[in-house]
Amino acid sequence: MLKFLFKRLLVLVPVFFGVTLVAFGFIRVLPGDPVEVLAGERGVSAERHAELMTQLGLNEPLWQQYLNYIGDVLQGDLGTSLITNRPVAEEFFELFPATAELAICAILFAIILGIPAGIIAAVKRGTLIDQGIMGISLAGYSMPIFWWGLLLIILFSNTLNLTPVSGRLSFLFEVEPVTGFMLIDSFLSDEKGAFKSAMHHLVLPSVVLGTIPLAVIARQTRSAMLEVLSEDYVRTAKAKGLSPLRVIAIHALRNAMITVVTVIGLQVAVLLAGAILTETIFGWPGIGKWIIFSVFSRDYFAVQGGLLLIATSVMVVNLTVDLLYGLINPRILH
């Protein structure tokens, strides 16, 4: 196990440096000029411009800039946002819990609906129910989620007035950020109704973000189940007269677990990409919205730091999933 972990970590090292190169390189070849963006319509004089470029360290030779950058990164300094003058890492970790909360709820939504749907489709294979479930999940898989979000807002928030349109909590409530997870924070606070409000705010974004994972999980579960159901020992179990429910419960769930873990691993990057769109649409104050804003406003150092942090979190999650997978299914360790 340790050896496996060590091997995986060793592969991550070059990838990590690759990502620093990418993040660094991108920013340096981005057209446009951060100083000019900050000045806007009012402009900036040539001397002041040169002064600010020097101050930002953008006048040094590239290799020197890269060495400085790597040195800073290894010391945990990811630079300072050009717009807010705050450390990038600080901004990131302030917003990260919001994205994590949204992603977790989305994946829970996907699992809770997706696994039963997949099992039912497999058991009722070939029937209308199966075709219906598979049709819906393929539609979900084909969904342009930015449009899906807009559609749900038009329907549920505007026409039916059922859900709030954006944000994480009604502003009537004052909740101290303890964990950064609004559900937990609002539950701990003594504000009545805050928890309910937080739940309400989470529904639509989670559904939108969870749609594609839901479709993937349902489809994966179904095919895993079909494979299991056709295997000899299951047939034997059936022949022995065990109730179908028991067969499914005992033999299928274990396999479903493996599927889910794999899919979650594969879906982390998908979820983060989806979070960019979902957070933009629902005004969700997370890192997806933040990084988009940073790209658009040419906040060089925020994009640079953000890319690295996001890539690192994807790597960490993938590593964790690999390990979990190894625990469930020890064969792959060798």
């Binding site: 070059p14 998908v270 990409a273 994009v303």
Partner: peptide
Amino acid sequence: DTIMAVPGLLMALVL
């Protein structure tokens, strides 16, 4: 691996 470490849409966006 490096390309895959960054979520696709984000990578495309920055590109």
